[in-house]
Design a protein around this nucleic acid. Structure first.
Lengths: 143, 143
DNA sequence: CGTTATGACTTTCAAAAAGAAAGTGACTAG
DNA sequence: CTAGTCACTTTCTTTTTGAAAGTCATAACG
């Protein structure tokens, strides 16, 4: 619960230079991708909103993951009030780029785990458009 | 290191019915996806081959993850010798369907983490062809 | 002024998981 | 008979988790 690092270059945690291994250094745990999901799909911004997520984050874990994600450059926090200072969190481009990973996990879960909820029609395309289509030249996937 | 479950229906571990949350119940840790990577991309089959992976699995962790993946139906083990019985491991269709998740992690890692190795040209398409194009009727991506 | 409430964390601590290393069982080779 | 190998399993110490309580700044109430 204490050590953190930027993890922006390979091998920082003693692993190989494999992009999968290095990506897992950031999101290879039970909670981190759920925080990203809440920020990306569910429009949550504040600590309290995230705490009310259906997943029931332990508060210390949530605080820790937000810090790690900030250190890794996947999210930024900005003060929305002073005295006491409170922050709102939002994903950076590096964070929203996680979308394709989330999307494939949704598709895999829907296909292979009974009882998982399916996003409404067009939901994923909407985000793909917004995130991938909106910021970069698009390219891969779907013609 | 002891409890295991099939986790083939949602909510088994007290989480929401979200497909991301439920997929993370299976692969939301540091090692599991690396084992799948070794089986899927690197052609490893035997316990000893997996142990020689660049990631350096602790042997007890590797044994545990293989069991969990088998319980979840992502891999099967088959004996390749008797006395003593030894097994070889290979992914099921449910396991190889993880490919798109791995692919997106490779792309994300290559884009955002300096120093990660890039697969050779055509590598991912090759697998997409083999796995997605080969087993199901799906999109066939280019004839 | 004193008390209660709220939001956003932080600290504490018991329990669970990870990980290093040594052990086990069934052989095979020398 | 002794040493070596493969595929795990067990033991044990360290680290991480996670439930719950605590903290801090401020607002609202009486």
């Amino acid at each position: 619960m204490k050590k953190r690092g930027t993890a922006c270059t390979a091998n920082e945690l003693g692993r190989s230079a494999c992009p999968i291994a290095n990506t897992l250094n950031l999101i290879g745990d039970k909670w981190t991708l759920l925080v990203i999901r809440d920020l990306l799909f569910l429009g949550k911004r504040l600590y309290g909103e995230l705490m009310q997520s259906a997943e029931g984050y332990p508060s210390n874990i949530l605080a820790d993951r937000l810090k790690r994600l900030e250190d890794a450059g996947l999210l930024e926090k900005h003060p929305y009030q002073h005295n006491p200072v409170r922050y709102e969190y939002h994903l950076t481009a590096k964070g929203t780029d996680m979308f394709p990973i989330l999307r494939e996990m949704i598709l895999w879960g829907n296909k292979h785990i009974e009882g998982t909820t399916t996003p409404p029609p067009g939901f994923l395309d909407h985000f793909a458009q917004q995130i991938v289509g909106g910021r970069k030249k698009t390219g891969r996937k779907k013609g």
